[in-house]
Amino acid sequence: MRLLLRAGLLTLLALGATFLLDPYRNYQLATATGVFAAVAGLTLLVGLTGQLSLGHGVLMAAGGYGYALTATRVESAIEGTPVADGVGGRLLPLLAGVAGALVTSGLLGLLLGLAAARLRGPYLAGLTLALVIALPSAASTIPGLAGEQGVRAPFVPVPDTLALLIATEQWHAWLAILVAACAVTPLVALRAGRAGLRMRAVHDDETAARLAGVDPGRVKAGAFVLSSLAAGLGGAVLAIVTQQVSPGAYGLGFSLLLVVAAVIGGLGSLGGAAIGAVLVTLLPWVVDQATAALPADLGHRLQGNLEIALFGVVVIVVTVLRPGGLARLFPDRKPFPSHVLSNTVR
């Protein structure tokens, strides 16, 4: 209950914040929110269960495709019917799309999770890396994904009642915040509850967890699926905001940025994930603005590269010197005493 209250408050706070921003910032906010949902899933996966996915961008893409294809289908199915004119015409494609995103990202997550249950560290990382590399080929091989050009997602216009008050970008930022809230709140609840304990138990000592009656395989696969669902919703957010899903937007660089965001924010920390998501969304733009003043040749060389180099340095420094990430700048969370752990698991 308290959790829901808090989630509601934070969501309202974020919704209110959109009034302070002009349309372009609201677009940036919406993008960062989509990224946040995915990073939140990733940071819990890595922080709590010790499984590293380098392919969360692909899970976002899966969610994006699921959203776009389902929403388009539903939109054309209800076209011409009385439903299409009312509020339902607006809401149905959106809700169906979000459900579609959950299905596709959940299914892909389940497949990967089954593999993840049997694998550790580098193997899972390598497998997910191969997945990222295969995405463009998969998009051009799988019928309906339309190759490099990608698929369109329906435009969600501002409801008439709000049209006088807010612009499209702000409306999309609202949708983004609401969807992301739906993605992140369950993660918070799960982390605080028994599932979170099980994940920590498996991460700390698989054998001990097994002795305590926890099936490590199921816990790991379950964690992977949850994380994928959050990433899928993040992909849906980006599809709502940009009305387009294409493999080029989910390349290796993007997946690595998700890892960077999780690491910088502090693995396992959802607040840190928010900070990390904003950083990876805004820093490239800041670098762009800064390099625009430089001579063209130097500027072009730095553009798109300088922020990557900076992120690389930060990731190394954080990992070597400050494994808690930026979240550790805030008051530290006390580690679980082991007796609490074993009691609860039993």
């Binding site: 706070l13 914040a17 982390r191 959802l270 607040g271 928010a274 805030f330 008051p331």
Partner: peptide, 22 residues
Amino acid sequence: ASLSSPRSVGTAAVLGLTAATA
């Protein structure tokens, strides 16, 4: 105890996020 900290971090993050973009 384990719940309180993420809350403050979360709140701070949302505030920071707003401030950064604003």
